[in-house]
């Protein structure tokens, strides 16, 4: 609309402590609650719940650097006409992810006993997050 000279969309990642990313992107791939979803310019506006997974951002042509990868753990995404805003409680940049650490965490969760329905459910959720983290770490390299 107003931004005719740009072909991409604005991509913003906000965490409770600060805004960690604010760039123009060609496309963004988001971990929605039920799977990855790609967003490019002109996508219909929506507000969605995020699951744990990786956010992949392909910067606009001409911008330096390759695709950026973040790990986001839950939260929301707001897709407007010209902007994607990711609101999450935890976002880790791809280069700070460690596959070994994620695997160790997964092992720890698997070996810890969980008794009762709630504990089991909680453990499954934590395992899901740890697995997504390990996956993202493997992709980051």
């Amino acid at each position: 609309m107003a931004e005719t000279k740009h072909s991409g969309i604005r991509c913003v990642i906000v965490t409770p402590e600060s805004t960690i990313l604010d760039i123009r992107a060609r496309s963004v791939s988001l971990p929605l609650f039920d799977g990855q979803r790609g967003v490019a310019r002109g996508h219909a506006p929506f507000i969605g719940r995020l699951g744990a997974g990786e956010v992949r951002i392909v910067p606009e042509q001409g911008a330096e650097g390759g695709p950026r990868l973040f790990f986001a753990e839950g939260g929301f995404v707001e897709v407007g006409h010209d902007a994607v805003t990711i609101i999450t409680q935890r976002a880790i940049p791809g280069d700070k992810l460690s596959a070994a650490e994620a695997k160790a965490e997964l092992e720890r969760l698997r070996s810890a006993p969980a008794i009762g329905d709630e504990a089991i459910e909680e453990r499954l959720k934590a395992e899901e997050i740890a697995r997504a983290l390990a996956r993202a770490a493997a992709h980051a390299r």
Binding site: F33, F46, I47, G48, E78, H81
Partner: peptide, 8 residues
């Protein structure tokens, strides 16, 4: 001016 869809 902005109608959002909600997922889920």
């Amino acid at each position: 001016s902005q109608e959002y869809d909600f997922y889920p």
